[in-house]
Design a binder for these strands. Sequence first.
DNA 1: TTATAAATCTGGTATATACCAGTTGAAAAA
DNA 2: TTTTTCAACTGGTATATACCAGATTTATAA
Lengths: 237, 237
Amino acid sequence: MPKSSPVYLQLRQQLVDWISEKNLTSQDKLPGERVLATKFQTTRVTLRQALAQLEAEGVIFRSNRRGWYVTPARLSYDPSRDIGFNLYVRQQGFTPRTETISKELILAPQWLAEKCGLRDKTPIYHFIRRRYVDERALLIEHNFVNPDGCAGLMELNTDDSLWQLLRDKFNLQPASRNIEIYPQAIVDDTADLLNVNTGSAGLYLQRISHDEAGGFLEFDHEYWLHDALKLVVSVQG
Amino acid sequence: MPKSSPVYLQLRQQLVDWISEKNLTSQDKLPGERVLATKFQTTRVTLRQALAQLEAEGVIFRSNRRGWYVTPARLSYDPSRDIGFNLYVRQQGFTPRTETISKELILAPQWLAEKCGLRDKTPIYHFIRRRYVDERALLIEHNFVNPDGCAGLMELNTDDSLWQLLRDKFNLQPASRNIEIYPQAIVDDTADLLNVNTGSAGLYLQRISHDEAGGFLEFDHEYWLHDALKLVVSVQG
DNA sequence: TTATAAATCTGGTATATACCAGTTGAAAAA
DNA sequence: TTTTTCAACTGGTATATACCAGATTTATAA
């Protein structure tokens, strides 16, 4: 006799069926939790367990206190290329948007100096940007750029590709990158900026770029929603 | 007046403090939920919310119905190299173990044939392996190997590096790899094999390797626990 | 000594209920 | 028409309580 699965997993399946039956698609809103709980004859608590399950699977997502929505297809993303986020997104038929949340010249804190092989308190540009696809905020990006050779970068419009600016205006181009990637919960400020609860699943991506002479160009880290991207990398050898 | 954070987040902090105060370290077990709930004067339900938060952050992990444990440091892992899992792990001072769960010669199903550019129903080796670090099961790996040029692979011991076997015994070596990486919930069989609940956060990693002539060598996918690894990739250009 | 069965751990699921806190949109005021 | 205010909605947090289901240990029988 097959053991029956728990109620919340059965409910999960009912929700999946219902979503496909109703032809709900990318970014469509689900009814409120109280409505769903009634419709499927269960408690809100149990319903939320099923919703959380689907959220973990990347089927639906929530926007802070606004409700549940159907998750759009993942964005393919190659962290070893720098054709620019906006271009990337458009090539896949989505609509990008970038907000520069802050830009300032700071003195490199110790952790950053260590990572990048700089002396403590070296001046460095710090950009914080929020990037959207189809008006859903997908990631928060921090760029720390070595000001050597690109003085005045901060006065330019940074809502598009930084690398494009560096290449076109300052003739700077990365020759090698060290990339680190791992799943990490999104917390605190970052969570707020992305309109998710602290502790939401996310993907952390860090990149250190050097020029041909081995000089430090840029340190960057990105906090992505867990269901938002698919990394694609090609490697030789 | 600063808004006070919810009880479960305060509790989260208390737990963190308590863990560090008690000097709990890698793989140490936490007291049972009922004990903790009493100690911190809260309900088991609220306590579990705090524990789930720490789990999402990768501070603690649970082993199915056994209890909560302190998460070990992440394993660094370069998916573009193939020095072999076991060697990788040992280099970082951990103890690896690999179990071959199954190995068989199958006929490539459609999805696989498409991905690898094969004809439908091409014969192909299928290995399923479970890999441990310090006796914690971290990932389930599926290898689909093109039998051309490595007949008899299935009879060999596959608890170490497949690539090492292919290189040493069959003179096969990959020239290029296409890698896909994204966060994905661990469900069903895979969850069972890893001793986690269905829906646990995980990282999915897929690799397609070709030889110098562009011939298909191997398709591989891996399901990792979300808190188990840190991907490290170096890229030129 | 070993194998088996039962008791007792542990976390997992489920229900009912209340209130809190941002979001939203409608109503009221400017 | 525009702004402001406020009611109502939504999801988020919190407590209390019960029972279920695997895992582990202990006691018992072979």
